[in-house]
Write a protein that binds this DNA or RNA. Sequence first.
DNA 1: AAATTATTTTTACGCGCGATAAGTTTTGAT
DNA 2: ATCAAAACTTATCGCGCGTAAAAATAATTT
Lengths: 343, 343
Amino acid sequence: MAQTKIRNMEEFASVSGLSRPTVSKYFNDPESVRASTRAKIEAALTRYDYRPNIFAINQNRRLTKNVGIVVPYLTDPFFAEIARKIEERFSEAGFRPTMYSPYGQPDAESEILDSLRSLKPAGVLFAPLGRASDRGALEKFCADVPTVLFDSNLEGIGEAFVGSDNFSFVSQTVEYLVRTGAPPCFFEMRTPANPNANKRRAAYVQAMQEFGHEPLVLKIDGEGWAFEEIGREGARRILESGGFPRDTVLCSNDRLAIGLLSACYEKGLRVGRGEGCALRVASHDDHPFAKFTCPSLTTAAHDYDAVAIRAVSTLHELIEAGGSFGRRDETLFPAKLILRSSA
Amino acid sequence: MAQTKIRNMEEFASVSGLSRPTVSKYFNDPESVRASTRAKIEAALTRYDYRPNIFAINQNRRLTKNVGIVVPYLTDPFFAEIARKIEERFSEAGFRPTMYSPYGQPDAESEILDSLRSLKPAGVLFAPLGRASDRGALEKFCADVPTVLFDSNLEGIGEAFVGSDNFSFVSQTVEYLVRTGAPPCFFEMRTPANPNANKRRAAYVQAMQEFGHEPLVLKIDGEGWAFEEIGREGARRILESGGFPRDTVLCSNDRLAIGLLSACYEKGLRVGRGEGCALRVASHDDHPFAKFTCPSLTTAAHDYDAVAIRAVSTLHELIEAGGSFGRRDETLFPAKLILRSSA
DNA sequence: AAATTATTTTTACGCGCGATAAGTTTTGAT
DNA sequence: ATCAAAACTTATCGCGCGTAAAAATAATTT
């Protein structure tokens, strides 16, 4: 295979029988050289495993091929899944995506942005922490680096937003629950970290009023990102002090619902829509584990693929537009109701 | 704040009243300069937000501060959690960790190693896919880059291995199940991707024999990494064709168990150790969701922290040893039995 | 205060490639 | 065969910093 070790592009150009600038052109865009030239280079690539030095490449380039993907909590399968889809699309498009996560910590988020800035990324897809984010730091970052927000919208930050339509989520679940049973109460954290939570609550109140029912919001205590634990503890307390005020519960998100279902099981409360069931539970997100809860969770699903595809294409356009759109577009995808056993 | 924008280290050295080589030394190791000098630089750092260009730094350094963390499937909360802990420790130690995942695809794994190589990392912590890995590619990589394996051991690959002791996992669960009830059958995939699965099966057989019971291994079909789905389908088929041959089931890992519990719930089969329960289920890993299954899962827990700490410190030592130990050490941490409701 | 040692400055080079300009060859259409 | 456009070669500069050696300065010891 590799008889001689190739040290740099000069040497590789030489063994390909070409000049360095031509080879350089090829690595920037293989289509930019003649087919016969391309063939020479690709033949040489099979004989020698040369790769341009990534640091030297980026040192002197105006625009790198680096893109950043930042999600608030990477150990949450929901974020891991969406980050993965985004990463995949960027790789296919010839970019070098890198994933970052502050794991819920605002100072870590700012730190990530700082070190991302020094990577001179062509662009960044950024799902902010939300309420806890350091707004000033984000604004400064977005002024320097073409950034598209996703999942959580912070008004005025980033050149565009791509996410899911919380109203679509909640109106569908409320409609379904009301139509097939009784009006739900709403189960959420008292001080949600994520701005989507507030929109969902507002959507719940509005939808209930439209259907002529009294909204009823149950706010449970708890800080941080251990939502399952918080949901379980909150549900336990409610169950131990007389139970839920209605026989249908709509959770703000699936992770809270997973905790709630766990508490119900523990207390021997049967959840589902069949006879012998004391409680119906529905939720939002279609978390990867929602299929496997007991009972399986009726929920409103994100269109993961659509969000990922659109986020990537929007960042693409932003990069090609030179880093700035005229106005800040917000793209919201509707949810898809997934009927399972819990409601 | 920043009156003048600092373009490079030369300018920053000038506003600090020092020469560039001294400033360079500081950024390589703040302790290597006099305290008064350090104070000057740090004072300048508060006035100007300068950061050395990451590409220029690494271009010419023998050893970068980059470290790679590779896990087989990052959307699995188990891997996400261990990767996170490792990442955290490296960051604290002044390294620049980057996470990668082939998401179960062997060619993606090789590709990751290739692009990692061009990052000239000081070292890599690598949890391989296992059976599916391209052994030749891994060997070539490890020859060039100081690598420590974790989670999955591949004999002869990498300079060291840090992981959990599968025998400790299984002997504890088997002992507990036998002592408090009946000898379990073993529930696993027919063709597991991960070498740990084979060790666990062997450990199960051995432990059963030592306790004087007949081992009984149930092999279920399924390919890929959708373990919950595979576990559920496998359990469904068993339940629909007469049920489990014993009233106690030990799963190879928690993700299969999550699927199995889901199938049991669906079929109305009550799982747990109390009266009225038809089946006891235990498992291994202490997956982040094992607390929230219905019933909550009795399992043998990895010592996540110990593995992460030891993996990082081993790679540290390897780097300081110049990339090679005399012999290949294997560190195995024992499991901790976590008693919950399922068995 | 002189001698020794530890730091810092000066000077200089190199890393590997991007970018550009001016000249040369190839291509493909007339 | 002619010629312009396209592609390639040659040559050269610069990016921002690491690194090394020698000279100058500061801190510590005797």
